[in-house]
Design a protein around this nucleic acid. Structure first.
Length: 895
RNA sequence: GGGCGGUUAGCUCAGCGGUUAGAGCGCAUGCUUCACACGCAUGAGGUCGCAGGUUCAAAUCCUGCACCGCCCACCA
């Protein structure tokens, strides 16, 4: 397509899906075992099948794709393992809700029919997130896609369970667990989210059994008074010392319970007297056990009052709270009720308030595995980025508690334990044992529960590679390299993968954990679909037309490791869209000058001008800096450096200067033609530089913005098939050159100085005016050679002169650091106005000279500061004084 | 109660011991300049949360405080 025919704006909606399909078709995402190459492995944090892409996923997945694409270009055998999680509770809830619309319950369908229905649901609606991941450009190896209920994966989960069971680490027990009355299942400690709510604190009097006034307790949960078995006070609490050992009477039930002493009671809280309800509270349960108290239960698995609670039977816990409190108040035993703000545990899936509930569950003892994982982290075998997260994970591991593994659900990996109907013996096995090994009984029943979804996720890094089989994949790709995630699943998932990896594979599953900050909206709220505070990524990418590249870049440029969250808004994506348009138009300009260009021809070094040498030097630094930033997991820095280089250096300056170099005659304003060529070698050098820097900058940018870089790269002359598999730019230390950099600094300063003067004087931007430019010998020579560039960029026709002469007649000037510029104005110079303008510069200068002078007068500074710092400051002071003197001359010449 | 992070221009963020504290957006002014108005040019805008300390030198290091946010913990 002719360059002129290319549109002025870039359309990501056309480009992005086209390239993704092409990459897929060419199999670029697939990784096979290849001992000749070094593997690089990232496990995609597996989305739920119920999931849809949200901004949080984009902000954690995008950095992973950056790392994958970068390492792939560096020649690593890069594997990004994708898949989805069956998401036990979440999925079962979705399908149950759907069934409820048809008036169906779990019991109506039965286990088998229900599971069929979930699979049906998965086939229809599961998987939408996969399409969304593809739309974002993620280079996952889709050929290796794993679902946690795939037969092979299912088998691995059972294998892990059975091994831990046989090692004695998994056990069954009746104890208090976090119970979700809505889901009617146990959940683990980590699945409880604490929320602040407004509640009340009831002060209730328990009369003494001997007719005395008894004791007043404070409680948030009057309904559990029916299950109280004691009142506890602190042993050193003088107020109650006499009551310990006596009995008090529970209101309503009129049961006599003892007053006991226990050090765990806080005398400062409430009345200092704690009612003990071992059936419905963790601390009470502990205290009850230690004092051999009975356990009474008044709430059932649905959170309703049990049948033996008389007139309260069947009430839900919240209604019961009011009714019980009311009934006690009617007896005159409620001393007072005060408003009370408290935190309650809620279910992270359905947000129902959790009940401490006693039931039979399966647990896993994590102490040994946690100690081993902690040791690995302390030894630096797993590094966290930012390292502060290591301490947080270590704190979790150092205080690890048993993991409640069983869930009273149907959707998930069913616990592979069989119990003999005859003798009660339990056997762990993948398939039903024919006979009981204990008594020979032939009727064995499988445990009805399924495993915590996170149990299956914990073995993801090796179960996806064929474990427990010793597959070539497993040998080659394990351990992996990086795990990138939001901080919210560090314990739920990351820590557990480290523990399981060490346990089953005898090695950590990855060496680096990259923790991405949380995305907030501008009000500082967590972005959430349910709260309506979110930003829908697909809407941004497709409907608003910003494209996946823009969203990726916008998020990556803000994922600094310094902070644990950052605020984000649509405008920030639009800004990157503008950057894309800038890149696109830079490409259009370059292409206009690349007719018949052969990228194989190396330019003659001597033909390179200062601008070419400058941009090559800047580019060489960029390669080193971007590569270094990626190595240090400073992706945000890499993004910002690329933005600044492309827009601020390559486009703003190099392209403008190159236009001049590619013109046949200064100021002719026409592109070069065959009839009017520029110097052949110069032209070749400039064209090569234009092409080389743009082409390779696209490579550096490709990991962050894969689509536009591929599109641009393809339109430029090149040899390769795709930028995706092009090699990462080679470092060019020999191009780093301070000389052209300093020359360009002078040139830019002069051009800016002239432009600023022009604006001050209100000279129309297009008007060409005469000017005098003065500088020291070297700088003057540089500027003189750039006279055509200055003419075009500053719109002046300049004469170049040595410094020191008086102000040219009828001119207005400025003294810049290192150069002076004078514009010749028609008519009379407004001396007063000029004095004021120059005076402002002098004032600023005076202040600096004053401050610097004081510093250089200080003996301590001269004696203690490093010599080069002192020397540099001296030089600065001299330069400023010289500049002040020139300004004074200039002002003096005005009259 | 313990821990972590933040507080720099109107907004979002860089800078984390040494020139005059930067960027993008927003704002003002001027430009339909032959890559780009999703643009170009010029400019205004900051006592770097507060109080101490260390240092020749502090936005940057230390201590304390104040807000904002997150995590952990069995205070009824």
């Amino acid at each position: 397509m002719a360059v002129d025919a290319l549109p002025k704006t870039y359309d990501p909606r056309e480009v992005e899906p086209r390239w993704y399909a092409e990459w897929l078709r060419r199999g670029y995402f697939h990784a096979d075992v290849d001992p000749s190459r070094v593997p690089y492995v990232i496990m995609l944090p597996l989305p739920n099948i119920t999931g849809v892409l949200h901004i949080g996923s984009v902000s954690t997945f995008s950095p992973q794709d950056v790392l994958m694409r970068w390492r792939r270009m560096q020649g690593h055998n890069a594997l990004w393992q994708p898949g989805t999680d069956h998401a036990g509770i979440a999925t079962q809830n979705v399908v149950e809700r759907e069934m409820a619309k048809e008036g169906l319950t779990l019991q109506d369908l039965g286990r088998e029919k229900f599971l069929e229905r979930v699979w049906q649901w998965r086939d229809q609606s599961g998987g939408t997130i996969d399409q969304q991941l593809k739309r974002m450009g993620y280079s996952c190896d889709w050929e290796r896609y794993v679902f946690t209920l795939d037969p092979a994966y299912y088998d691995a989960v059972l294998e892990a369970f059975i091994r831990l069971y046989n090692e004695g680490l998994i056990y069954r027990g009746k104890r208090m667990v976090n119970w979700c009355p809505r889901d009617q299942s146990a959940i683990s400690d980590l699945e409880v989210e604490y929320e602040e709510i407004d509640s009340s604190l009831w002060y209730v009097r328990y009369p003494g059994a001997d007719g005395s006034s008894g004791i007043v307790i404070a409680t948030q949960r009057p309904e559990t008074i029916l299950a109280d078995v004691a009142v506890a006070v602190h042993p050193d609490d003088d107020r109650y010392r006499a009551l310990v050992g006596t009995e008090v009477i529970l209101p309503l039930v009129n049961r006599r319970v003892p007053v006991i002493a226990d050090g765990r009671v806080d005398p400062e809280f409430g009345t200092g007297a704690l009612k003990i309800t071992p059936g419905h509270d963790y601390l009470d349960n502990e205290i009850g056990q230690d004092h051999n108290l009975p356990v009474l239960v008044v709430l059932d698995e649905k959170g309703d009052m049990t049948p033996d609670t008389g007139k309260f039977a069947g009430l839900n816990r919240f209604d019961a709270r009011d009714k019980v409190a009311g009934a006690i108040a009617a007896l005159g035993l409620v001393e007072k009720v005060i408003p009370y703000r408290t935190s309650v545990g809620t279910c992270d899936r359905c947000h129902a308030i959790i009940e401490p509930y006693i039931s039979d569950q399966w647990f896993c003892d994590m102490t040994g595995m946690a100690a081993r994982a902690a040791e690995a982290i302390r030894a630096g075998r797993v590094r966290f980025h930012h390292e502060r997260w290591a301490r947080i994970v270590l704190n979790f591991l150092d205080h690890i508690r048993p993991w409640t593994l069983s869930r009273q659900l149907w959707w998930g990996h069913r616990i592979p334990v069989w119990q003999c109907d005859a003798c009660g013996e339990r056997v762990a096995a993948k398939i039903a044992p024919a006979v009981c090994p204990q008594c020979g009984g032939t009727v064995l029943t499988q445990d009805p529960d399924v495993l915590d979804t996170w149990f299956s996720s914990a073995i993801w890094p090796f179960a996806t590679l064929g474990w427990p089989q010793e597959t070539p994949d497993l040998r080659y790709f394990y351990p992996g390299n990086v795990l990138a995630t939001a901080n919210e699943i560090l314990f739920l998932w990351v820590a557990r993968m480290i523990m399981m990896g060490l346990h089953f594979m005898d090695d950590v599953p990855f060496t680096d954990v990259y923790v991405t900050p949380t995305v907030l909206n501008l009000e500082g709220q967590r972005m959430s679909r349910s709260l309506g505070t979110g930003l829908d990524p697909l809407e941004m990418v497709e409907d608003r037309g910003y494209g996946a590249d823009a969203l990726r870049f916008a998020l990556i440029s803000r994922c600094s490791q310094n902070q644990q969250d950052f605020r984000f808004a649509e405008k920030m994506i639009a800004d990157v869209r503008n950057f894309n348009t800038k890149i696109w138009n830079a490409m259009r300009l370059v292409l206009m000058h690349l007719d018949g260009f052969d990228p194989e021809t190396e330019p003659t070094t001597t033909a390179l001008g200062p601008a070419d040498r400058w941009i090559r030097s800047r580019y060489a630094r960029l390669v080193a800096n971007v590569t270094g930033a990626l190595e240090a997991f400073e992706l945000d820095r890499a993004a910002r450096m690329l933005y600044d280089f492309i827009w601020g250096e390559y486009c703003d300056w190099y392209l403008e200067l190159a236009k001049v170099d590619l013109q046949p005659e200064a100021g002719s304003g026409k592109p070069p033609t065959k009839e009017r060529p520029v110097n052949g070698q110069r032209r070749a050098a400039v064209r090569h530089t234009l092409w080389y820097v743009l082409s390779n900058t696209m490579k550096l940018l490709h990991p962050i913005m894969p689509f536009i870089t591929e599109e641009v790269w393809h339109r430029l002359p090149h040899r390769g098939d795709s930028i995706m598999i092009a090699s990462w730019p080679q470092p060019r230390p020999e191009w780093v050159d301070a000389e052209p950099e300093s020359q360009m600094d002078s040139l830019i300063a002069v051009i800016r100085g002239i432009r600023s003067l022009r604006t001050d004087l209100g000279i129309a931007p297009a008007t060409m005016i005469p000017a005098h430019i003065r500088a020291g010998t070297d700088t003057l020579e540089t500027l003189r050679r750039a006279h055509q560039h200055i003419a075009r960029l500053a719109k002046v026709e300049a004469v170049f002169e040595a410094q020191g002469m008086p102000r040219p007649p009828s001119s207005v000037g400025a003294v810049l650091p290192g150069a002076e510029v004078y514009l010749l104005v028609r008519g009379v110079v407004d001396a007063e106005r000029e004095r004021r303008r120059l005076g402002r510069t002098v004032d600023d200068l005076e202040a600096d000279i004053e401050r610097l002078g004081r510093r250089l007068d200080s003996r301590e500074f001269l004696e203690r500061a490093p010599a080069e710092v002192v020397e540099r400051e001296r030089q600065r002071l001299e330069d400023m004084k010289a500049r002040r003197a020139r300004l004074a001359d200039l002002i003096a010449s005005l009259h």
